[in-house]
């Protein structure tokens, strides 16, 4: 029988092209039973939100390697709220500087997975944030 899947939208905003991290993450999440909707690079906030709505994604993940992530994240979250999808959890990965974490949390970012984060941490976050369980992931609620 089909089941409740976690649908996770992965995207990059701005002109950042360092996509190898997020592409590998997509494969690893697929291995854990996640349905990844992969938007690739060079997205605008509007594009991400339209995809998020159409795909009814449970969670959005963004990866950054450029320093402009504060700007793009704030812009996206503002537009998500305006579009009525401010409730969808947002996680960030890539080169997120520790100094910026409080500001990002303040904005409403729910998960921050900088360098050194493990797959188990990401999977646990996905389960907690969406309230859904993954096939092999007993991490939720544990």
């Amino acid at each position: 029988m089909p089941q409740q899947k976690i649908r996770c939208l992965l995207a990059m905003l701005g002109t950042d092209v360092h996509n190898k991290g997020i592409r590998t993450l997509a494969q690893l999440l697929r291995d854990r039973g996640v349905e990844v909707i992969y938007l690739g690079e060079h997205n605008t906030a509007g594009g991400v939100i339209n995809a998020l709505i159409a795909e009814d994604a449970d969670v959005v993940g963004l990866s950054y390697s450029t320093a402009t992530y504060l700007h793009y994240t704030r812009d996206l979250l503002d537009k998500m709220r305006t579009a009525g999808v401010g409730d969808v959890p947002l996680m960030l990965g890539g080169l997120i500087h520790a100094d910026d974490e409080p500001a990002l949390r303040e904005m409403g970012v729910r998960g921050i997975f900088g360098p050194g984060s493990t797959m188990d941490q990401i999977v646990e976050f996905l389960q907690t944030a969406t309230g859904k369980t993954l096939p092999g992931g007993a991490a939720a609620g544990a």
Partner: peptide, 22 residues
């Protein structure tokens, strides 16, 4: 910067924040 690398002008409405960044 990433904009110049991809032949995009720095006043591009969606990507202007990246101008001069990297």
């Amino acid at each position: 910067d990433t904009l110049s690398q991809e032949a995009v002008d720095p006043d591009h409405p969606a990507f202007s924040p990246d101008a001069g960044q990297e």
